[in-house]
Write a protein that binds this DNA or RNA. Structure first.
Length: 700
DNA sequence: GTAGGGTTAG
């Protein structure tokens, strides 16, 4: 890549299509397209064709819907020697029923299980088992073995029992599949996922048949540790070895593809199974709904609802919860509300998750009134609440600035039974007081939290530091940071961004103490801050180091980092070109999409996502480019506008006010737009005469 | 807890 020469003006608003210098390789993709918001293309299949690729031609055959009704449909599968290929078996595995009848009293077997569970070493276990099953005595019957395998604790004892069983039974006897399956389930609940997979490999090695239960257990284990590709390998192995998945295994795999974001393949597999005569159940529909919700795909959600109605499945509470969540993600709060009313009217009782999903949706939509009404209705109907629901309500109050309601809820939690405030609850309260500028109350809550033995989390610590610094209490903010670090909080990128903003806004004599905090969290950022302050640092050095830091940072914190660094450069009187260099790089890296727009009617500058310093810097660049346009006699629009937003958002740093006062110092023709809140406008004639008068001033 | 799949938080 050719090195970019240090430009005197960064041509921010001219460069036709800036090529980002971001490494092209893997995960940290910093170069978003600035024009398109469409998701990245689906990953293409690798070396061997995937299962769904192989199934595609068949799927097309099945999915053909004749445009004209065919009076005599020709059966597709006429040759009985060639059975209709099916991707899934419509028959579920029969559940095995133990021979013994249920007994309310602890059986000898249950007592034995307890005794064996006391073992903590191989030797102890061997001794205990030798007592229960003396040499020469018959081995335990299958039912007893199954009971022991699934009830022994901890999982090591299940494994020891399994090994003992294998050594005691004659080697000619194959180990029944069910023993493996039950052991696997036990290991899965102990989160020993790798062990489950190695047991499945052992079954393959010793030719113990794997059935649908084995496969679905292995697949869900791999799913739980995000080894999705391995899960798909096992699924494909089923077909290779002639085991046709049933609906349980099939929906587990649909979920695997869904979590990989391979939506087209999920739909392909789903429709393929539908074409084979399968009627989806609640689980499959939930998987689809979750997937479309995750993607914010409203059409997909409608498809699921259509499938539900079409196949006659009456949604249960889980399906409703998933659909509600999906509606929320797709940004349809009104539809979520009607779906909820539909659910209640069918007589289904909402549970904690239903209500949590709704409160989240109402909060995001800023429907405080609806959220509070729902809360009243919950109490009136005695609908269930848990601490997640309480915390969601508190967070909603924090987002909407509902101080009194939050305090009432928080008191409820302290008084009530099972829902004691935890670090999330305290964080929400600190967030409320912090965003209302009540630094003292926020600090009191932090101290109360620690006094009550609730460990602070990184979010609460960030909120508190932010609010203390805003109140000018930088020393307290530094102390909170030190305390939190000492209590084992691991600073994340958000906290670093928060510290960086304190570096920008604190008094000069406080800067070193804040940088010392940041040094412990992200020394590289401190290095960059120092580099920026030095006269001798070249543009290329800034670019490379800044890019390196951004590539390491969480995507959501990249723009805040850039904003804060620009503020630091301006507030600390760093070399004057620095702020412009950073804004240029930020734009190049795609951190400020849609910064300016041109229509024939109006050219506009959108400063809404910029900090005060970044906004001023961007405005200066923009005015430079407008001057050039005037000088070059370009076709100009009737008006020019700058948008700062109304400043009512909770995180707003008062940009409209700051920008208005900055405008006054500049003597530029922009004036507040009386019609559009947070906008500033100038007419073409005023801009032209301003440019000409400046040129005249320079000439004299 | 006596074989397998889906839903909850900045």
């Amino acid at each position: 890549m050719a090195s970019l020469t240090t430009p005197t003006s960064f041509l921010l608003f001219f460069s036709p299509s800036p090529k980002p210098f971001i490494k092209k390789s893997s995960t940290p993709i910093l170069c978003h397209s600035t024009t398109s918001t469409s998701p990245p293309p689906e990953p293409t299949s690798s070396t061997s064709p995937s299962l769904s690729d192989q199934l595609k031609p068949l799927s097309l055959t099945f999915l053909q819907t004749p445009t004209t009704p065919n009076p005599k449909p020709k059966p597709t599968w006429v040759n009985p020697s060639k059975p209709k290929p099916s991707v899934l078996s419509l028959v579920r595995h029969k559940r095995r029923h133990p021979h013994s009848s249920p007994n309310p009293n602890p059986t000898p077997l249950a007592l034995l299980s307890r005794k064996l569970s006391l073992s903590t070493t191989d030797a102890q276990f061997s001794a205990a088992i030798a007592l229960a099953f003396p040499a020469g005595a018959p081995p335990p019957p299958l039912d007893s073995s199954l009971h022991l395998l699934s009830t022994l604790r901890p999982w090591q004892n299940s494994l020891r029992f399994f090994h003992w069983l294998k050594t005691t039974s004659p080697s000619s006897d194959a180990t029944p599949t069910i023993l493996y399956n039950v052991l696997m389930k036990s290991l899965r609940s102990a989160r020993q996922y790798d062990l489950v997979e190695s047991l499945a490999r052992r079954m393959l090695d010793e030719n113990t048949p794997l059935d649908n239960i084995t496969y679905s257990t292995v697949i869900t284990c791999l799913k739980k540790c995000q080894r999705y590709d391995d899960a798909i390998d096992w699924f494909e192995r089923m077909y290779r070895t002639g085991v046709i998945p049933d609906e349980v295994t099939y929906s587990a795999v649909l979920d695997v593809y869904a979590r990989l974001g391979r939506r087209e393949e999920v739909v392909g597999l789903y429709e393929r199974a539908r074409a084979g005569g399968w009627n989806p159940d609640h689980v499959a529909l939930s998987v689809l709904a979750r997937m479309f919700g995750e993607a914010g795909d409203y059409d997909g959600i409608q498809y699921v609802i259509g499938e539900m109605k079409g196949s006659g499945v009456k949604p249960n509470v889980v399906v409703y919860n998933t659909l509600l969540e999906a509606m929320g993600r797709a940004g349809k709060p009104g539809l979520a509300r009607s779906l909820f009313e539909e659910m209640v009217s069918t007589g289904l009782a909402p549970n904690e998750k239903t209500l949590t999903a709704l409160i989240k949706i109402y909060g995001k939509a800023r429907w405080g009134k609806d959220a509070l009404e729902l809360w009243e209705r919950m109490r009136a109907n005695s609908w269930p609440a848990d601490f997640i629901l309480y915390n969601t309500l508190l967070s909603m109050c924090a987002d909407l600035g509902l101080e009194e309601e939050a305090e009432k809820l928080f008191e409820d939690m302290k008084m009530g039974g099972g829902c004691r405030p935890d670090s999330w609850s305290y964080t929400a309260m600190i967030n409320i007081y912090g965003s209302l500028g009540k630094a003292e109350r926020a600090l009191e809550l932090f101290e109360e939290m620690i006094a009550n033995g609730v460990e602070p989390n990184v979010m609460g610590c960030t909120c508190l530091i932010q609010c203390l610094a805003k109140a000018g209490r930088v020393g307290d903010a530094v102390r909170v940071f030190e305390t939190s670090l000492a209590r084992g909080i691991k600073p994340d990128d958000r906290l670093c961004g928060c510290l960086l903003s304190v570096v920008a806004l604190c008094e000069p004599e406080e800067m070193e103490s804040v940088l010392a905090c940041l040094e412990k969290a992200n020394p590289r950022l401190v290095g960059l801050v120092k580099m920026l302050g030095e006269e001798g640092t070249s543009f290329d050095e800034v670019r490379d180091e800044f890019r390196g830091i951004l590539n390491e940072a969480n995507v959501d914190t990249r723009r805040p980092f850039c904003n804060c660094l620009i503020d630091i450069c301006r507030n600390r009187h760093y070399p004057s070109q620095r702020a412009h260099e950073l804004l240029y790089l930020g734009t190049l890296f795609g951190l400020y999409p849609g910064l300016h727009e041109k229509t024939s009617e109006e050219w506009s500058l959108n400063l809404r996502s910029l900090s005060v310093g970044a906004a001023n810097t961007a405005f200066e660049e923009w005015m430079k480019s407008l001057s050039s346009s005037v000088d070059n006699l370009e076709l100009l629009p009737r008006s020019f506008s700058v948008h700062t937003g109304s400043g009512t958002h909770r995180f707003s740093q008062g940009l409209p006010v700051a920008f208005a006062s900055y405008l006054k110092t500049l003597d530029v023709p922009f004036r507040r737009d009386e019609l559009r809140c947070g906008s500033f406008v100038a007419a073409k004639e005023d801009v032209i005469s301003w440019v000409q008068s400046r040129a005249a001033a320079v000439a004299t």
